[in-house]
Structure formats: C-alpha cells, structure tokens
Write a protein that binds this DNA or RNA. Sequence first.
DNA 1: TCTCGTGTTAAAGTGAACTTTAACGAAAAG
DNA 2: CTTTTCGTTAAAGTTCACTTTAACACGAGA
Lengths: 126, 126
Amino acid sequence: MLFTIKEVQEQFGLPASTLRFYEKEGILPPIGRDSGGRRLYSEPELEWLQLVVALRDTGMTMDHIKNYVELVKQGDETLHERRLILLEHKQDVERKMNQTLEHLEKINRKMAIYDLLAHGKKDFLI
Amino acid sequence: MLFTIKEVQEQFGLPASTLRFYEKEGILPPIGRDSGGRRLYSEPELEWLQLVVALRDTGMTMDHIKNYVELVKQGDETLHERRLILLEHKQDVERKMNQTLEHLEKINRKMAIYDLLAHGKKDFLI
DNA sequence: TCTCGTGTTAAAGTGAACTTTAACGAAAAG
DNA sequence: CTTTTCGTTAAAGTTCACTTTAACACGAGA
C-alpha cells in the first residue's frame, strides 16, 4: 500500500512542504517515486513518520531526531544506544509534564481567586 | 521587599535580558527604579512574573500573554474574561498533555520492541 | 583618580522549524 | 488541444522568542 504526499498530508495533518522538508533534512528516509518523480510513501515510512511526530511533539529538537535517525540507519548495532535515547527523552518528557502540572496548579489558584472575587461581588450585589 | 534584576534572574532562572525584554514588550508592568535608574522588582511584580512563566511554559504564546496582561491593566471589569482565558488555556494544556501521553505510549512501544530485539539476541548469544 | 562590575538603552542579530516563492513538468478534465 | 491541478526543485523568506551588541552611566574599591 502506497500513499501520495497529499494523502499523507491529510492523514497526518502535516503540510506537504513539511514532509518534503523532513526528507531533505534526513529526518525521513528518501521516499520512493512514481514514473513522474512524485513521492509515494510506504507503510514503514509512515510508521517512521509517526515516531518522528511523537518525538517532535514531545519536545525533541529536529537536530536530536536527525541524530537518532542516523543511528537507525546504522542498523542493529545501535539498538542499545537508541533505546537509551528514547528512555532519556521519556524521562525528560515526564519531568516536563510534572512541571506543567505545577504550572496548572498556579493557574488553578489564579482562577480560584477570580472566582472568589466574582462571588464577593455577587454578595455585594444581592 | 525589593529585588535587583540580578536577584530575580537567579530566583527565576531567567536572564536579565529576558526580564528587560518582557518589560519592554508590556508582558511585565513598568518596574520601579532606584536613584541610579536600576530596576527594583517588588513582590507583586514577582507574583506576576510567576504567572507569566506558568502561562509561557504551558505553551501560551507571548502575544496571548500580552493580551491577557492588557486585560489585567483594565481592572476588575475584565475578571470574567480573564477567568475564561485561563480556563480555555487550561483545557488546551490538558488536551496537549493527553496527546503527549499518547506519544509517550508510542515511544514506549518502540522501546519494548528494542527490548524484545535485545532479548532475542541474548538468547542467541547463550 | 582610575578602573571594574553592574546596570541602562535602542537596535541589530540569532536559531529553530518551517513556509513561501519561482520556475518548471506531467497528467487529468473539459 | 488547452487549461487546470498537482507535483517537483532550490533558494529565499517568515515567525517566534529571545539574545547580543554598542555605547554609555553610576557607584564601590585600590
């Protein structure tokens, strides 16, 4: 099963320009082409794209993703190193999530203050 | 209690240049000065900075933060609107956190695959 | 008095991650 | 056929959030 750039664009919500950009940067492997030179994405490439998006959206920089991709290209000898990178990134994400939770607490407290003020006003308005 | 820019820099882990930048952009209110024109941050201003950092680190753009600041400056009539902004942002953050959790799941599955491969190797190596 | 550290400003520069443009080719629709 | 539509490339442009630079000023210590 092969997909045109337009189909991938719709499936992933990523602009075609971004897909081309990722390929040019080596974040995606070179994608196969049809007779007219147009990209055709295969399932393993989409699998790969899914992981890239997961890493990106959890805050890994493109440079680090590229680095990781290089390891994938080097084959099975880098399995351990790759696992370590994912583990460290995961721990990083978890730390950031905890920070976010603390920040949400701050925001909640602010909202609670707004609620108190609003209630205070209502009491006055009765 | 008043704090120099250096003290705030250390307390918040924000470069002095960023503090000046935030003030210039209207993200912080105009900070009081000493006789020599040097900034002195008061406690309410630090409180304010804390909320700004919380909003920024949870992904609110500087433009939206600036917008929110404008509402604060307009006083109590904007309390309701401000509460709504915080609520919507909070829901936004929660959506993003759920996405992040899904992405983490993807990363975990990848790591599990690496583990399986590693184990497979061990079995062969015995 | 000199110079060092810390501060000030406005304006220019930076880096990351795309996004747009320009110029072109192939193919499907009318 | 011809005109859209969709794709291609390399290169230049954009946006966001700072960060650096340059030129200057104040106050403390030698």
